[in-house]
Write a protein that binds this DNA or RNA. Structure first.
Lengths: 368, 368
DNA sequence: TTGAAAGCGCTAACAA
DNA sequence: TTGTTAGCGCTTTCAA
C-alpha cells in the first residue's frame, strides 16, 4: 500500500528484461531459457540454475502481450451455457458479447448454447455435446442436481469449468462468479428494518420455492430483520411463480388483509406486478417495497417511488468475467484469487438507479 | 442485445482477416495497406478505394494485441498528480499500482508526483515540470482555480489530460473520472428520509466549506430530503475541518442541544470522530448516521451499527481507469465514451460493507 | 541437451 | 507511389 504510493517507478526500462537478454547474459540460446522457464524438454540442471539466478536478479516478468500474440495462434473455444428466456441473461449476454470482442484477438471463440428447458438431464447432454466438440473451457449457470454435479466433475478433470450466477458446490469447477444471495438478502433486511422501525409486519415473496437464490435472499432478509429485534415477518413465503399477475394478486390481497403491513420484499420474478398492485392500492407511501435486480419495470418503480430500493448484481460482469478468468487461466496459468468471486451487493435507490456497472471498465458502448 | 444472445459466433476464424491477407487479395504489399488504413504517406486513390472495399467486405478489425506489441516499442510515460496524505488516495494508489503492472508490457511508465500542498500555483508548477519531462499524458486531481484551468488548457493542446476524483470543468481535459457528488448526496438524503420519516431534525457536517465535493454532497442531501417533504434540516453546515476531534465535539454538542435530532450526515473527514461521539452519547440506536467513503473507522462504525450506511466511490477504479483510458486513447485513438465517467454511487450497509470493488475485475490481490 | 530459425500481426525505415 | 525488410517478445519446430 505504502509501496504503491512511494515506489520510484519512473524507470526507463518499463518493458523489463526479455528472454533474449537473459539468454545473452547466461550465454545460452533463447530456446534454452524458454525451456528452463516452462520446465519443458530437458535442460542441464546447472544451466537451469544459472538462468533462474539471472531471472531472479533481473526480476524477469514474461511479457503478457507478446505471449498473448503467440498464444492466439492456437485458438481456443469456450462453451457457454445460457438459460434462454430469462431477462437477467439478456444483460449478462452484453458482458459476454463484450468479452467475445475483446478476447477475439487473443484467439478466443465463444460457442453459445442456449436452452429454455433448464433440467439436469438436458444440461448433462449439453455438457457432453460441448466436450465432444473439444471446447477448451466451459462457462455455465448450473442446475443444482447430482446428475449435473457428476457430469461437471467428470468433464472438469479435463477442461476447466466456471459457474456463474448459480453455483454448483462440491464439484471440481474452477470457480464461481455471482452474488452471495444470503448477504444480499441480509442487506435488504437491514435496510427494511431501518425503514419500518419495528412498526408493522413484513411479507416476503419469492419467485419460486425451488430457486435456491430466492430462498437464500429470503433467509438473509429474515435473519437481518430478526437481528434488529422486534420486527414481525409473516412466516409464509408467498410464491409469485415468476408471474406479474400472480404477484399483483398476492400484494393486493396482502395489502387488503394485513392491516399493519409495513413492508414487502420481492426476492424473485414478479416485481413489476407487485409494484403495480402497491401503487394501485394507494399505500405506496406507507408500505416499503424492496426488490431485486434491475429489470426495466423495477427501475421504473424505484424512480416513481413505488419501490424504495432494489438490489442489483451486475449481470454484465457475470457475462464478462468468466471469459477473462478462463482465458488467463489457460493462457498464463493464473488461478482465480478465490474459489468464489462474489459480485457486489449493489443497493439502488432512485438517485443511483441508473449507475453504470462494469460497463464503465470495458469499451462497451451499448451499440451491439 | 438480442444480437448478443443470438449471434452465430462459433466461427473458426476468430482471429479475423489480417493486413497480410488483405494485401494479397488486393494484390499490393502490406505496407500499402497499412498506409491506406492510417492515411499516412501517399497512396493511389484507386488502390486505396479497392483496399477499403475489401476491408469492408471482410470486416477487417486491427489486431489489438499485435498492435500493442508494436506500440510498446516506443514507450510512453504518464504523469500522475497525487494529493499526498489523503487516505482516499492510498486506495486509489492501489488501482494505479495495478494499472502500472498491467500496462508495463504495453510500454507504459508511470511518473508519480506527490504533493501535500494542494495549491493552484504549486499544481501549475507540477504541470510545467511534467511537460518539461515530455510525458505523454497527464492524470490529475485538479484544484479548482483559474490558474490551474489555464495551465491545463495550455498543456491539453499538446498532450491529453484526464482529471479524476475532482474535475476541472470548462477545460480541454479529455475526460473526468469520479463520482457525481450531487447524486451521491441525493442518494444519502433519500435513504435518510426513508429512515427518519419526518420525525426530528437532521444535521449536515462537511469537512470543509472549501471542498466542492463536500458542498455538493450536502446540497444533494438537502435536495432529496426536501423533496420527500416535511423534513427539517438544520440550516448551518457544520465544519469538521477534517478533524475527528472537532467532529467529536460537534456531534456531542448537537446531540446534547438538539433534543429532536434524528439524523446526522457527515459528508467529509471526521466520520470516525462523529461516530465515536454518537456511540458515547448512547443514542446511536435512535439517531441515524450517514457517512461517505470507506475509511477503516467508517467501516467499523457501520459494522457496529453506529453508522447506518456509508456511500463509497470506488477509489481503486479512479486509480486504474485513467491509465487504461489514456493508453487506449494514445495507442488506438479510442475516445472515452463520455466526457464525464461517473463511478458508481455505492451504498454500503453492514452486510455489504466488505464488498469487492473493481479489484475483482483485475488481477489485484492485495499483495502489493 | 542445446542452438538456429521461423513466424504471430503490425509498423516503420529504407529502397526502388 | 509502392515494395521489401526487419523487428517487437515469445514459442515452436527442426537440426545438430
Amino acid at each position: 500500500m505504502d509501496e504503491c504510493l512511494q515506489q520510484e517507478s519512473w524507470r526507463k526500462d518499463v518493458l523489463g528484461v526479455t528472454i533474449k537478454q537473459i539468454a545473452q547474459m547466461v550465454g545460452v540460446s533463447r530456446g534454452t531459457v524458454d525451456r528452463a522457464i516452462h520446465g519443458r524438454g530437458d535442460v542441464n540442471p546447472e544451466v537451469k540454475a544459472r538462468i533462474e539466478q539471472v531471472m531472479r536478479e533481473t526480476g524477469y516478468r514474461p511479457n503478457t502481450v507478446a505471449k498473448a500474440l503467440k498464444t492466439a495462434q492456437t485458438p481456443m473455444t469456450f462453451g457457454v451455457l445460457i438459460p434462454a428466456g430469462n431477462r437477467f441473461y439478456e444483460d449478462a449476454a452484453k458482458g459476454l458479447c463484450e468479452a467475445e470482442e475483446v478476447y477475439a484477438p487473443y484467439g478466443v471463440a465463444i460457442r453459445r448454447m442456449e436452452e429454455t428447458e433448464l433440467t439436469a438431464v438436458r444440461q448433462a447432454e449439453q455438457l457432453a455435446q460441448l466436450e465432444s466438440e473439444n471446447v477448451n473451457g466451459i462457462i455455465m449457470t448450473a442446475v443444482d442436481d447430482p446428475v449435473v454435479r457428476q457430469a461437471v466433475n467428470k468433464i472438469a478433470e479435463k477442461i476447466p469449468v466456471i459457474t456463474y450466477n448459480s453455483d454448483l458446490t462440491d464439484t471440481r469447477r474452477l470457480c464461481f462468479i455471482g452474488q452471495d444471495h444470503i448477504a444480499a438478502g441480509r442487506a435488504s433486511g437491514t435496510l427494511m428494518g431501518k425503514m419500518i422501525r419495528r412498526e408493522g409486519t413484513v411479507a416476503v415473496l419469492v419467485g419460486s420455492k425451488h430457486m435456491l437464490a430466492h430462498l437464500e435472499r429470503a433467509e438473509g432478509f429474515r435473519q437481518a430483520l430478526r437481528e434488529q429485534g422486534g420486527n414481525t415477518v409473516l412466516p409464509e413465503l408467498y410464491e409469485t411463480h415468476e408471474s406479474d399477475g400472480r404477484a399483483y394478486s398476492l400484494v393486493k390481497w396482502l395489502v387488503e388483509t394485513q392491516c399493519d403491513l409495513a413492508g414487502i420484499c420481492v426476492t424473485g420474478g414478479g416485481q413489476a406486478g407487485a409494484g403495480a398492485a402497491l401503487a394501485a392500492s394507494g399505500k405506496a407511501a406507507d408500505i416499503r417495497l424492496a426488490c431485486y435486480d434491475t429489470l426495466p419495470e423495477t427501475i421504473q418503480h424505484v424512480k416513481d417511488g413505488v419501490a424504495d430500493y432494489t438490489i442489483a448484481q451486475d449481470p454484465f460482469l457475470q457475462g464478462y468475467l468468466p471469459v477473462k478468468i478462463l482465458y488467463e487461466y489457460l493462457a498464463f496459468g493464473t488461478k482465480p484469487k478465490r474459489e468464489k468471486l462474489f459480485t457486489r451487493i449493489d443497493i439502488r435507490v432512485k438517485d443511483n438507479i441508473m449507475d453504470a456497472g462494469y460497463e464503465l471498465f470495458t469499451g462497451w458502448n451499448g451499440k451491439r
